[in-house]
Simulated assay, not measured.
Amino acid sequence: MAALETGTWVLVADGEKALFLRNMGDAQDPNLEVVRKTEQEDPPNRDQVTDAPGSMADGGPMQRSSLEQTDFHQLAKERFAEDLADILYRQAHRGKIERLVIVAPPKVLGALRPHLHKEVAALVIAEIDKTLTNHPVIEIEGALKAELG
């Protein structure tokens, strides 16, 4: 199991918020310092949609197929994952990140993975599928210590 060594960065994210933390302590006594906090406003899809889904002509006479409604809320979460991947790449490229732990719900992890540059992906020592963005840093430290041993 990966250890939360001194200097390890921790990304705690969901689809709308992210905390970039750095461990100033060690694996036995983590002391996470907030490096950066990022948020995006992402109202529910119902507040972003203005029209009903459309339809299109389909094959035979007088036949129409309905189109699926665009999920703007989900699109915004995916764009946010891309933004997080860009931030991580810039920090890794500057040599600021040597080890990285990512803490996010499964959907966010899935959206983030394909956007991680290979340079960043190589630094990931652990992924934890939890939502901890609304927890105080001390609780995040405890959760990481429990998960990473």
Rank of each mutant, 00 (worst) to 15 (best):
A27G: 05
A27T: 13
Q28L: 12
P30I: 09
N31M: 09
N31P: 00
L32H: 11
E33F: 13
V35G: 04
V35F: 10
T38M: 15
Q40S: 06
E41R: 14
V49D: 00
T50Q: 10
T50R: 14
D51L: 08
D51K: 14
D51F: 09
P53M: 05
P53D: 08
G54Y: 02
M56H: 11
A57N: 10
A57C: 00
D58C: 11
G60F: 09
P61M: 10
Q63F: 02
R64H: 13
R64E: 12
S65Y: 01
S66W: 09
L67E: 11
E68Y: 04
E68C: 00
D71V: 01
F72S: 02
L75N: 10
K77H: 05
K77S: 04
E78L: 01
R79K: 13
A81E: 01
A85Y: 04
I87G: 00
L88S: 03
R90M: 07
R90D: 13
R90P: 01
Q91Y: 09
A92F: 06
H93Q: 15
G95D: 07
G95I: 08
K96Y: 10
R99N: 12
L100A: 12
V103Q: 06
V103D: 05
V103S: 07
K107V: 09
K107R: 15
K107N: 11
G110P: 02
A111M: 09
A111G: 11
A111N: 08
L112Y: 05
L112R: 05
R113L: 12
P114S: 05
P114I: 04
P114K: 02
P114T: 03
H115W: 04
H115I: 01
L116Y: 07
L116P: 04
H117N: 15
K118Y: 10
E119Y: 03
V120G: 08
V120T: 10
A121P: 03
A121Y: 02
A121C: 03
L123F: 04
V124N: 08
A126W: 03
A126K: 13
E127W: 04
E127V: 02
I128E: 10
D129N: 12
D129Q: 12
D129Y: 02
T131N: 15
T133E: 09
T133Y: 09
H135V: 00
V137Q: 10
V137S: 11
I138H: 11
